[in-house]
């Protein structure tokens, strides 16, 4: 079943050239998709269309069978977005308050909010830190908090925009673990990243974008070989395999 259906989507700034140009895309429920491309290729703009943060002039986006523009609240509940800079998306004065922000916006009663928040913080391993203010958390913890804030709204699709930027190695591992867990729990995952290395083991499908268009779309290990042509570094695993084959030919 398709959880995301995008047809003929074109988004342009008035008087400018299109940031997204005639995008057609379907995503199956439970898929793990990586969207890669050079800066300015339109990845973030595409993601913002999925929960109605941006609404395109042309084309349509459906989430779970319903047009995004018809029910923004539903779209935002179904599609959780984790932004590039965790610090800018954490709104609560404490870890608990931040995770409670979404469920409160959805109108959940107080006891349910508390239950959901405690459960979600348990899932990302931050339950012990729930009374702390977010600014004293580490980079990886902040990213996990951002994930918890989204998970508390029980989304079906989780969109990560450059989730590994500014993270040290333990932070990257923490986010990778969360992603793998979410994928194993049948969430649909979309990740925009330059660093294919970090998602190579998890991804089902790779989409390459250039100048607002989808230029390649297919199984990860088929499409990944074209990545460098579109400004994305090949993962080391793929690079080594290539080197090995070159050595064999000699």
């Amino acid at each position: 079943m398709n959880i995301i259906e995008i047809s003929n989507l074109t988004h342009r700034i008035i008087g400018g050239k299109p940031i997204l140009n005639n995008i057609n895309l379907t995503v199956k429920d439970g898929e793990f998709i990586v969207v890669a491309g050079a800066n300015g290729s339109g990845k973030s703009t595409l993601f913002k269309q999925l929960n109605g943060l941006l609404v395109a002039g042309q084309g349509q986006v459906k989430i779970d069978g319903v047009f995004v523009a018809d029910d923004l609240k539903r779209a935002r509940q179904k599609v959780g977005m984790i932004f590039q800079e965790a610090d800018s998306q954490i709104v609560g004065e404490t870890v608990f308050d931040d995770v409670a922000f979404g469920p409160e916006n959805l109108g959940l009663p107080g006891e349910d909010v508390e239950r959901v928040v405690n459960h979600t913080l348990g899932l990302v391993g931050l339950l012990d830190l729930k009374e702390l203010p977010p600014h004293i958390l580490s980079g990886g913890e902040k990213r996990r908090l951002a994930i918890a804030g989204v998970l508390a709204m029980t989304p079906k699709v989780i969109v990560f925009d450059e989730p590994f930027s500014n993270l040290d190695y333990p932070g990257i591992q923490q986010v990778q673990t969360q992603m793998a867990t979410l994928h194993s729990e049948k969430h649909t995952i979309l990740v925009a990243t330059h660093n294919l290395e970090t998602v190579a083991d998890m991804a089902d499908r790779l989409i390459l974008m250039e100048e607002g268009e989808i230029v390649k779309d297919g199984p990860f290990y088929q499409v990944v070989h074209s990545a460098e042509a579109f400004g994305v570094r090949l993962p080391q695993s793929v690079r080594r395999r290539g080197e090995f084959q070159t050595w064999l030919k000699r």
């Binding site: 913002k48 609240k73 935002r76 800018s88 998306q89 409160e104 916006n105």
Partner: peptide
């Protein structure tokens, strides 16, 4: 710049100014 990104993030989490305040 950060406040702009914060507003976007709040919007993506269904923020509504008139949400009921906790009792």
């Amino acid at each position: 710049d950060r406040s702009q990104r914060l507003a976007t993030a709040m919007e993506s989490r269904c923020f509504d100014e008139n949400r009921p305040s906790p009792p």
